[in-house]
Write a protein that binds this DNA or RNA. Structure first.
Lengths: 384, 384
DNA sequence: TTGTAAGCGTTATCAT
DNA sequence: ATGATAACGCTTACAA
């Protein structure tokens, strides 16, 4: 463990620091011990050196015993282990990271954790990572490439053993990721992915998601279905709009370009959505239904409509992606496309650990595609 | 930066690794360079050693130049800085952490990031931390002490410079925190705090929050107001129930113990809330209003009522804490107690940085109390 | 002003 | 089976 400094009290001379290695561990953190006076000072954690000193052996012996090396006698091993337990020895992960250039931690980059979809994915990731001995470091890009680059830099400088990422909306140039990938950093992409990097990825069948959403509306009799989408750079955007267009075609409806609005920042700036909705609603022929192709767009859209006094589904129908656990508390008429976020997280970390722990170069990459669910709203929205 | 390993290709002999310090930086990550053949291998980041070698000076000189030490000639400093820039040198934070026992990062422990309140607090923390040169490491306790202890252990082993924490519901023994605090780790508590640790804290006026909520219902004419609360161990629980009780008293209503239900896990287990609501609704004299004293309890309560077909506010009134950004999309009759989460995060990190960066021991601790807002629902809920 | 060397905690290599 | 030593990247007395 580290040594925290009590401001104003200095005990920096290593020769002066004392570690009372006789004291028994009183708690998980008792590797810091009190000095003879009652002032708190800078404490050193118990290190292998302390164990070595206490036992009169060398640090290498201690290290070997702790690592369960074969070249050690059972007796000394037992002795060391016992002593380590008594002193509540905890290996210093920072020293290990420096030495081994790995940290037993994996980095996760998402645009925002306040988004239910992403926090659920993170929960999926953590649920498996911890069991496998990895810690998870979360970084938010806030939909900014600049920030994404900083995050990646931070994570890689912290020697993360692998990376799980959903690209920011601004990210059209992925050279920063490509660089890390080229250097051999195991990467798994999810949600917003790119083909330019040859690695595992986890997505939902976005095409299917919007296809079914659109089909649902078409079958209900809606004739002028608009779509609000994210930045055109994002993989999810083209896929989701693809499903929308194909469904229209399949049902013999013409695709109307003015019925599609993009929000470059995916609704991080609320006015984007407002503008999009307003533009749609002020068309000569305003839509009778809207498909919102992301969580943030769905809620933003609903908010805007509500604020404008436009009733869903009476005045207009709305179907959208949504992963909030309180979705069911919202407008009961709302039909949502639900993504299996937890499973996506689990799949991502599993694939990543596979990459990390594989001894030989991986050449076959998997694009794991999970199936979204169309959850039909309670109130029917039938027109015509 | 660290060196990532390309599986199957080994270049572990330091003598064999080459760093072409002539190559110009091509991107932020180009501190890794390619070998003469096209295979990717284990790359070493540019270190001060490389700069020293390139310039024919010692590493200490380089270090001094980079640290902007006074004991260095302007010329060499310029030279070193230029070279560092050219080679795209990036200091290795792990080496620094090991040496300095600090990491320029701060740890944040919350029960769950999927909770809007906490992710907003985290956003507040990050917004300031990054500007001040600190990274934020997020850890979730999932309302488990065991996990909280693990998180603290992880964070302290990573040499975080400070800690911001909201206690888990299971945490009645805070010795694990106390230990870290005694060792001089700067700690700021928020939301769920404890007096046992003498340090800064940030909370909302919980008493006021429920007092006003209760008062609101009383003024509307409700006579049998129940409350659903978290574990009795939590600071927020007693404070929030305090406001509820006092408001009842102020309005001449008798406090009825059977109208108060506790959810030990604060609704992490949904059945807890269901049970609580069910028990309330099956009393001989069921309540005509419920106050839910946390975000999770509010949504859980609403869900349960909805599933049981109990209409809010027609059959029963509901007022609760809620910080979701989509609160307005829920039942418009809902009156909520809103906490200034972003501000709480900002206050917490500011107080923490104050602790971290203060040169002298801090003896005066501040309990910063922010004011919650009662946001009255759209539909009036008048009875009597 | 600059260089040398020790040290942060650990492991790997090479002796013994 | 065990110990001495070097090394990971960096800073900082101490020497020169």
């Amino acid at each position: 463990m580290c040594g925290f400094r009590m401001p104003g009290i200095v005990a920096d001379n290593p020769g002066v620091i004392r570690k009372n290695i006789q004291l028994p561990a009183s708690s998980i953190f008792s590797s810091y011990l009190y000095l003879h006076n009652d002032a708190y000072m800078k404490f050193e954690a118990v290190t292998i050196k302390d164990i070595a000193k206490a036992l009169g052996v060398s640090t290498s012996t201690v290290s070997r015993a702790l690592r369960d090396s074969y070249e050690i006698s059972p007796e000394t091993k037992e002795l060391v282990l016992e002593c380590a337990r008594k002193l509540n020895y905890m290996p210093n992960p920072i020293a290990l990271s420096l030495k081994e250039r790995r940290s037993r931690s994996i980095g996760v980059v998402v645009c925002e954790i306040a988004n239910s979809f992403f926090s659920q994915v993170i929960n999926g990731i953590e649920s498996i990572a911890y069991d496998r001995g990895y810690n998870v470091i979360i970084a938010q890009s806030n939909e900014s490439v600049e920030r994404e680059i900083m995050d990646l830099h931070y994570l890689s400088s912290r020697s993360v053993d692998g990376l799980i990422i959903s690209l920011s909306t601004e990210t059209n140039d992925i050279s920063h990721l490509q660089d890390l990938h080229n250097k051999g950093l195991p990467i798994v992409m999810f949600d917003r992915v790119t083909d330019e990097i040859k690695t595992h990825s986890v997505v939902v069948d976005n095409f299917k998601g919007t296809y079914e959403a659109t089909e649902y509306l078409l079958q209900k009799g809606y004739k002028r279905i608009a779509a609000i989408a994210n930045s055109e750079f994002l993989s999810i955007t083209s896929e989701r709009l693809g499903g929308y267009k194909d469904a229209l075609q399949a049902y013999g409806q013409k695709f109307n370009k003015s019925y599609v609005k993009h929000c470059f920042y995916g609704g991080m700036v609320f006015s984007e959505i407002e503008d999009a909705v307003n533009k749609l609603m002020t068309l000569k022929q305003p839509p009778d239904a809207i498909i919102a192709t992301s969580d943030k767009l769905t809620t933003g859209c609903l908010k805007t409509l509500m604020r404008r006094g436009i009733k869903v589904p009476d005045d207009i129908a709305l179907v959208g992606f949504l992963n909030s656990d309180i979705a069911e508390l919202m407008n009961p008429a709302l039909t949502v496309v639900h993504q299996p976020a937890l499973e996506m997280g689990k799949a991502a970390i599993e694939l990543l650990l596979q990459l990390i722990e594989s001894k030989r170069p991986v050449t076959q990459f998997e694009k794991r595609v999970l199936t979204p669910t169309l959850v039909i709203g309670k109130s029917a929205m039938d027109v015509n």
